[in-house]
Amino acid sequence: MQRVCFLLKVRKDRLEEYRLRHEKVWAEMQEALTAAGWHNYSLFLREDGLLVGYLETEDYDRARELMDTAEVNTRWQEYMADCFEREEGDVPHGAAHPLAEVFHLA
């Protein structure tokens, strides 16, 4: 099982909206994540907008590939796009490059 951690940046003026939207994550989005192999998925948000994501999966590249082709994910990314700081042309999950794991206590 791969453990994956990534960082993104939520706009400071959109922090509350980001939280509110995640109180009501669409059921079909949750189903797509599960079907793609995303397990134990969590998001942590700091007050300055730093977002830390964590998930476990058998194959992260495959799990992302499956989400990239899921129509509901396209709609979700469009819905969430205004919440993120990003470079021109970036999509939020596309900018989520995994961090290197340097220690794990089992």
Rank of each mutant, 00 (worst) to 15 (best):
G37F: 12
Y54C: 04
S42A: 04
R14N: 05
L51S: 05
H93E: 10
D61L: 07
Y60T: 04
L66Q: 14
A100W: 04
D90W: 14
S42L: 03
M80P: 00
A70P: 02
H22K: 08
D68G: 08
V72T: 05
W26F: 10
R11G: 05
D48Q: 00
D90C: 15
Y18M: 10
P92C: 12
Y54E: 05
E65K: 15
R86H: 13
A35R: 13
H97V: 09
E47R: 03
M80G: 03
E23G: 04
L50G: 00
A32M: 08
L8N: 13
H39R: 14
C83R: 07
L8T: 08
V72S: 10
T74C: 10
V4L: 03
R14K: 15
D59S: 12
A95H: 02
V4A: 07
L7V: 12
L43C: 02
A95Y: 02
R11Y: 11
E56N: 05
Y18K: 11
A35C: 02
T69G: 08
D82C: 14
R14D: 07
A35I: 07
E58F: 09
Q2L: 06
E17D: 11
W26N: 06
R64L: 08
D61C: 04
K9T: 09
V10M: 03
Y79P: 00
P92A: 14
F103S: 12
E28F: 04
E87G: 13
L15P: 12
L45P: 12
E71A: 13
E31M: 02
R75L: 13
F44I: 03
R46W: 00
L66P: 04
R3H: 13
A81W: 11
V52W: 02
A63P: 04
L45D: 11
Y60V: 06
A96F: 05
A27D: 11
V91T: 15
Y18F: 15
E56T: 07
C5R: 06
G89R: 14
E58Q: 15
A81G: 05
